[in-house]
Nucleic acid binder design. Structure first.
Lengths: 339, 339
DNA sequence: ATCGTAAATGCAAGCGCTTACATATTTGCT
DNA sequence: AGCAAATATGTAAGCGCTTGCATTTACGAT
């Protein structure tokens, strides 16, 4: 069986080209260190044998993998897609490869993924949000692999972050909602346990209420997974309450879309009967009718910048720097003045 | 600096526990081969040192990585998300880890990703669709890593596949459209070059036309990337033609949503002025108004089955078996009888 | 007690690559 | 032409782990 023909190794190439393995290795990794004639001979052998370097061996010998890992909470919706895409483009340009896993918003899965990625030799990690066990940061430090947090900006943390101020962004939007005359507010939030972004967004709403003389305690809060269906369900719950809100600020666009759909189904007109807002400004927010008033996040910038900064940490053992990006409110048609 | 404290190795653990590295290794990989007392001692040392095995070393020594790679065309929309999720769940349960990369629908990127994943020691690969250079299949064979194709079902290919019959599914839908009285048909397709699924879907429409006595040549075809914006643009083009279609069959839901949105923008009512259909039945198809008439694909079944079959190939050197899953037309409100 | 067998552990040879360091070859000057 | 310096290549020592085989220990049966 041809199955028995084993995969060619550096040694095979070296023999075939009549040079040492060191030369072949140099040819592959730093071609200019080898004279043209030799190089050509080696490359021909590589071609002929269909040789591909064994990554594990390379990582082990070089203690460098040119791989960056990213653990995102979910791939099921587009929240992280755009930012990750930009991140990937940037690191690819700098010669790195991206490995992605998703944690399904489960801390224990995330931890496992982090360990997996590190064990696989990732040179650095992209993490979403700051909230996780200290143990994990200890581990990362011990293993000496730098990490960068995105989608959140909280300076002074152990790990640098590049993102936006979730609290302030939401506070601005809530402020606008209140200024439009809404006083019975509700929020459909993601699960805030272990999710600083969700928590800060809720806090932002409360702060805005406080600031405008409303009691923060009056805010109706429903926490639920970030899924369209959950958003719909939460909307149903909210409208079954005695004191129905006139505006619902959702923790993200996915939830908001669910709410909008459910409102439609239940015969409420958005925004005339009820205002609904989102967060993130993913494509979905433009597609749904009415278009979602939401908070635009500079996903691509964030991804790109996170990549640049992380690579700096990797290559220069830099401690890494945090950056705060600006968000802005984008008005579409799901929010209007209270009647 | 504590940075200098290097990462603990098997050796460190062995010394600390007063056993040989072999015993530690066995403790970690096959605990029952080691007597309880020893095991405990070893585990304590592992804890104390915060030891984590070095993956590269393990792969190299064991020639097995318990890793499966998947290369999907895009993560930007949900087309592959659900199936991949199911795939991931299944392999995780069987003790494997999933590594995902996306090729952005570019064959050369896909090839690179395949090589990367294989070099990284993937035990098997999940690929989308059959269309790719023979060279790649040669490589996979040479490297002795099994692959499974999903989202397409074409028996008798070099690589087994699990999916649905794209041609037949689209043919059924087109048949239904024609039966509703439409005769001026158009399609907004993905780029068919290097994409068997796209090509077969177009073919399915033509076959249905043929079968119903329409000339297949009369089908207006626009090929464009699978993006909402492209779908919108294609719609614009189609409606600028002399002989406007009364029904547009889109290559997938993303394209269809773009078309629906654009129709709305241009003042066409869907489906009264024009019928539009999708393919895939992703969440978006339910969200958009009017709801998209589309073809439901059993994403989760497909993912799960692909995983099971691929693992069988890996573990039993089985040649792998192909399976054909059924699709079904789901009627929503974007398709109606021609006037 | 003694011996045979089975269970537990240790020894040491790699896995395929990179990279100091040593050696050989070429180049540029005088 | 001759020599030092620069350049090109080779040698070989690991990187951290697994695993076949050898050795030791434990346990019953005689």
């Amino acid at each position: 069986m041809s199955k028995l023909r084993s995969v060619p190794t550096l040694d095979d190439v070296a023999k075939k080209a009549g040079v040492s393995t060191a030369t072949v290795s140099r040819c592959l990794n730093d071609p200019k260190r080898v004279v043209a004639a030799t190089r050509e001979r080696v490359m021909t052998a590589v071609e002929a044998l269909g040789y591909t370097p064994n990554f594990a061996a390379r990582v082990m010998a070089a203690k460098r993998s040119f791989t960056i890992g990213a653990i995102i909470p979910t791939m099921e919706n587009a929240i992280f897609a755009r930012g990750l895409q930009a991140f990937q483009e940037e690191i690819h340009q700098r010669g790195y490869t991206l490995l992605v896993s998703s944690s399904a918003y489960k801390p224990e899965v995330e931890e496992e993924q982090i360990r997996t990625l590190v064990a696989r030799g990732a040179d650095g990690l992209l993490l979403i949000g700051h909230d996780r066990e200290a143990r994990i940061y200890d581990y990362l430090e011990q293993q000496n692999v730098p990490a960068m947090v995105a989608w959140s900006f909280i300076p002074g943390k152990r790990t640098p972050s590049i993102g936006f101020d979730n609290r302030q962004a939401m506070m601005a939007l809530a402020g606008k909602v209140i200024e439009l005359g809404h006083s019975r507010l509700a929020t459909i939030s993601g699960v805030s346990q272990g999710n600083d972004r969700a928590r800060l967004r809720i806090q932002g709403i409360k702060d805005a209420m406080q600031q405008h003389g409303l009691s923060p305690d009056a805010l109706s809060i429903i926490e639920t997974p970030y899924e369209i269906e959950s958003g719909a369900e939460a909307f149903r719950l909210l409208m079954a309450q005695d004191n129905r809100p006139t505006a619902i600020l959702c923790g993200n666009d996915v939830l908001a879309v669910g709410a909008v759909r459910q409102a439609d189904e239940m015969g409420y007109r958005v925004p005339d009967d009820i205002s609904i807002t989102g967060f993130d400004d993913i494509e979905l927010a433009r597609i749904v009718r009415p278009g979602l008033t939401t908070i635009h996040v500079p996903h691509r910038d964030m991804g790109r910048k996170a990549a640049a900064e992380l690579i700096d940490m990797i290559e220069n053992s830099s401690p890494g720097q945090s950056f705060r990006l600006d968000t802005k409110i984008v008005m579409r048609n799901s929010l209007t003045r209270a009647k």
